[in-house]
């Protein structure tokens, strides 16, 4: 009787991740996504409308503060469109990061009672984040369509729009990778949670979300902006839809490589943590 289906052992290799098993649990992933959507819809008065209220309010505030008071350039693009574009794509990262970064602490109850591949949980969060993103993206498209119909000459869409799925995937990869590293660390260091809230905020100001890279004049700051892996995504997204911004293949490739490194190390760290984390909670 050598043919056992399952062998439970103390040590597993760092890269011994059972993707076949994750695939076998794909129905669970869709149930978690469904649960996220249903519960948001049922527990609030306005339901999914909240998803679009937030970017609208943020855009209005940015127009007042950054557009009119600080008078930061938007590369000649109408301010509402410029800010909304930045917020929409950035929010997907922020949402993915914020939700996956709480994987272990928020699901300790379930994880302590039943086994399933733990990666399902952050995957589900990124997927429900994608639905939220798509709703916000529709809002962006509506505002976008308005400017196209009005015939605003400063809005120049181009074939780079075809790269949209790449940008979305990259944001998902950054959110997921950073989130699962973060949640793995918080099982040991609870005080890191304080970093979570303002960390994303700081990262947003460090990335060209509400300003274009072209406004940076200091060459040292330009170098920093160049090394920020979010820059090619944010600039590329704006370039594709608005025609204002900077796009180059090497920069995009750099961002892809960083994303892959982050995601792989995230999965390895997460995998190492998930085995015994329930003992330390």
């Amino acid at each position: 009787m050598k043919d056992y289906d399952l062998i439970i052992r103390p040590k597993r290799h760092a890269f011994d991740i059972n993707f076949k098993e994750i695939w076998a649990y794909r129905d669970l992933l869709s149930m978690f996504v469904k649960r996220d959507i249903i519960t948001v819809y049922k527990q609030t008065v306005l339901g999914p409308i909240w998803f679009i209220v937030q970017p609208i309010m943020t855009t209005l505030i940015y127009i007042v503060v950054f557009g009119n008071i600080a008078k930061i350039s938007t590369d000649g693009v109408p301010q509402p469109l410029f800010y909304l574009a930045g917020i929409t794509i950035w929010n997907y990262f922020a949402e993915s990061f914020n939700t996956t970064a709480k994987t272990f602490t928020e699901n300790a109850g379930i994880f302590g009672k039943v086994y399933f591949p733990r990666l399902i949980m952050p995957f589900a969060k990124v997927t429900s984040g994608l639905i939220k993103f798509l709703i916000q993206f529709v809002l962006f498209l509506a505002v976008y369509a308005y400017y196209i119909i009005v015939g605003d000459v400063s809005v120049n869409p181009n074939w780079n729009i075809a790269l949209l799925p790449v940008y979305i995937l990259l944001m998902a990869a950054y959110g997921l990778g950073a989130g699962i590293i973060f949640t793995s660390l918080t099982t040991k260091y609870r005080d890191l949670t304080f970093l979570l809230a303002f960390g994303v905020q700081l990262l947003m100001y460090a990335s060209p979300v509400i300003y274009p890279v072209s406004t940076i004049e200091d060459p040292r700051l330009q170098t920093i902006a160049l090394y920020n892996p979010f820059t090619p995504i944010l600039e590329g997204f704006k370039y594709a839809f608005l025609g204002a911004g900077h796009f180059s293949w090497p920069n995009l490739l750099y961002s892809v490589v960083v994303a892959i490194v982050l995601l792989v190390s995230g999965i390895v760290i997460f995998h190492k943590t998930e085995r015994n984390f329930i003992d330390t909670v």
Partner: peptide, 21 residues
Amino acid sequence: SRVTSPTTGSIKVKGRLASLL
């Protein structure tokens, strides 16, 4: 139920195992 993993030794299981904790 694989909620946590052992320090030493092994468990071999044949067939689908469901646990009801």
